[in-house]
Design a protein around this nucleic acid. Structure first.
Length: 606
DNA sequence: TTATTATA
């Protein structure tokens, strides 16, 4: 069957809006038309696409909304009924759970618990801040089903507030579950609370999450990383299981990759929120001042504080000069100092270049072995669900893995398959298994919902190399984001041994796709760095990388450092303006007045 | 225009 131009135009607009809606609650009308045009390979006129868009708008499938770009300039845009519904669900559940529960403690009881915990901590040399005391008490006396802890980076909320709350909740017979959106953050929270941490996604699949009528509390760290969709699912799950929800995060740090700004939106809608603002991480007053200024988006004040003693600021005109300056600063440190330093470069491309410079110098100094093992690493391709259904999104050489058996297609779960042919016009992909057996894959018909897609990438490992895992592998005890050091290589057999940061030693067979989910970790993106702490950070902040350098980048990067932050930039004044202009907030599908209506409804219920 | 997690 040959698609008519009209059918193709419809398909193109449906694809484009599905793809954009996964990542943004509101997208620009111009972007929608362009994505649709790209999908149709230029076989459909701009007018045909425009008329399909206006039909969709008349039918209510696209809802007009003002789109704001990163500088706040307004354009015509759209959201979808589904995005609105997701946000409404999330806000409704939170509002309906207000003032519904027996508190865990009376105000008196809470005060006693806090005093006891604070005294114990003071004996160990850590005095609690007033914020920590008040927040712990707020949680203990809360009658709300959902309560938030909004805490800036380095307020030590986990070891004080959450640890005390979890302990007290357990003492009163509640089951406490430690959760986070990412596997690495879940591990960190789990360790801090002395229990196993789990990802939100996994937890929602477990039987405990489906059990009802049980006294339970789910503590969710890094809640700002949850998209509206994930937040809605989490809340619906907690609601069903009758669990209390403690959402812990920071609206000023990085948000979700997926659409929405759920944690911030819930706070704005009046979710009970206890706040911690007093930062205790920085040992250096000027570094701390820089963090506080960066929270407000005042890069000028932040940079001035760094120059007064919190670190330094280096200006260099070209990218080449800046990356060289970063590499020079880093390599000049003693190895022990380097181990306590984070190097942050916002873009993937820049990360690669800077990694190359640093490794080159370390080889020259003999700190990385002269011998190397070369292999093909697998990098996640980051397709949206909509893209995963389209053959045009794939390339020959990519590796796919299905997380389910497809018996009729002789595909088994977890098997790595290489793409040998792509036919975008017919929507077909040729796959090969390990023995070269061909499989015909039609992603619009099956498998696109369970597929992981990876791109091949040449990589070399030397003894002494720092790497990080890029995929969870529970059977092998591998956690995405976990760091490690290469302790030995065998170029002859294409294998390497890795000492992981959790103390385990693993041998990698670099001819096996399963062992190739690796990346050098000398340099990290901000997303990877969020949640980590170091003595010192080196930050590349190019004012011209409009999509990456904003208030959130500066704040997350500077706040990682306990004592010193070094910022390398193209132009100080431009950087100050860029950070001031770009808050880095994601938009929501519901307008402020929609939220007020939902809030009024919640108030009427509560 | 660019970062990226999770799951069956």
């Amino acid at each position: 069957m040959v698609a008519t131009p009209e059918m193709l135009a419809r398909q193109a607009v449906a694809f484009a809006s599905a793809k954009l809606a996964e990542r943004e609650a509101v997208f620009a009308a111009g972007t929608l038309a362009r994505e649709a045009g790209d999908f149709a390979f230029g076989k459909v006129s701009h007018d045909a696409i425009a008329s399909v868009i206006s039909e969709a708008q008349e039918r209510g499938e696209l809802v007009p909304r003002i789109f704001r770009d990163r500088r706040g300039t307004e354009y015509a845009g759209f959201t979808t009924p589904r995005a609105i519904e997701i946000e409404r669900t999330m806000l409704r559940i939170e509002a309906a759970g207000r003032n519904m529960l027996q508190p865990l403690a009376s105000p008196m009881g809470a005060a006693r618990t806090v005093e006891r915990a604070a005294r114990q901590s003071a004996r160990a040399g850590f005095a609690w801040t007033e914020d920590q005391k008040r927040s712990t008490a707020d949680l203990l006396v809360s009658r709300d089903r959902v309560i938030a802890v909004q805490g800036y980076a380095g307020t030590a909320k986990t070891t004080t507030v959450l640890a005390t709350y979890a302990c007290e909740a357990e003492r009163r017979g509640l089951t406490v579950t430690a959760l986070a959106p990412t596997a690495s953050a879940a591990t960190v929270l789990g360790e801090a609370l002395g229990r196993r941490g789990d990802t939100v996604a996994r937890h929602l699949l477990t039987p405990e999450a489906r059990m009802t009528g049980k006294d339970a509390v789910w503590i969710v760290d890094e809640a700002s990383l949850l998209s509206a969709h994930d937040m809605a699912r989490l809340m619906a799950g907690a609601d069903k299981a009758g669990a209390r929800l403690v959402l812990v995060g920071d609206v000023r740090q990085l948000g979700s990759v997926g659409a929405g700004a759920a944690f911030a939106q819930l706070q704005q809608a009046g979710m009970a929120t206890t706040r911690l603002a007093e930062i205790v991480r920085q040992t250096n007053a000027e570094a701390r001042e820089a963090v506080l200024a960066s929270i407000e988006g005042h890069a000028g004040k932040a940079l001035a504080a760094l120059e007064r003693g919190g670190g330094k600021v280096i200006e260099a005109a070209t990218q080449d000069e800046r990356l060289r300056a970063l590499a020079r600063e880093y390599v000049a440190m003693a190895p022990a100092e380097r181990a306590r330093t984070l190097v942050i470069e916002p873009s993937r491309d820049g990360c690669d270049r800077l990694t190359g410079l640093i490794r080159g110098q370390l080889v020259g100094r003999g700190e990385l072995s002269a011998d190397a093992v070369r292999f093909t690493a697998l990098e996640p391709k980051g397709l949206t669900r909509a893209e995963a259904r389209e053959a045009a999104s794939y390339a020959v050489g990519d590796v796919v893995r299905f997380n389910r058996d497809y018996a009729g297609r002789s595909v088994s779960r977890g098997e790595a398959l290489r793409i040998s042919a792509v036919d975008p016009e017919r929507g077909r992909i040729g796959l090969e298994d390990g023995r070269g057996r061909p499989i015909d894959w039609h992603p619009r018909q099956w498998g696109a919902g369970t597929v992981e897609v990876f791109e091949p990438r040449p990589m070399e490992l030397r003894t002494g190399d720092r790497v990080q895992l890029t995929r969870n592998d529970r059977e092998q005890g591998r956690v995405n984001g976990l760091g490690g050091t290469v302790t030995g290589i065998e170029p002859g057999t294409a294998s390497a041994t890795l000492k992981l940061a959790n103390g385990r030693e693993q041998r990698l067979d670099l001819t096996d796709a399963r062992d190739c989910h690796l990346r050098h970790s000398w340099v990290q993106t901000v997303y990877a760095a969020q949640g980590q702490t170091a003595e010192r950070v080196l930050i590349h902040a190019d004012s011209r990388s409009t999509n990456l350098v904003d208030q959130k980048l500066l704040y997350v990067a500077v706040s990682r450092a306990r004592s010193e932050a070094i910022v390398v930039t193209d132009d100080r004044e431009r950087l100050v303006r860029a950070v001031y202009e770009r808050a880095g907030e994601k938009q929501t599908a519901m307008t402020a007045s929609d939220v007020r209506k939902t809030k009024a409804l919640g108030a009427a219920l509560g």
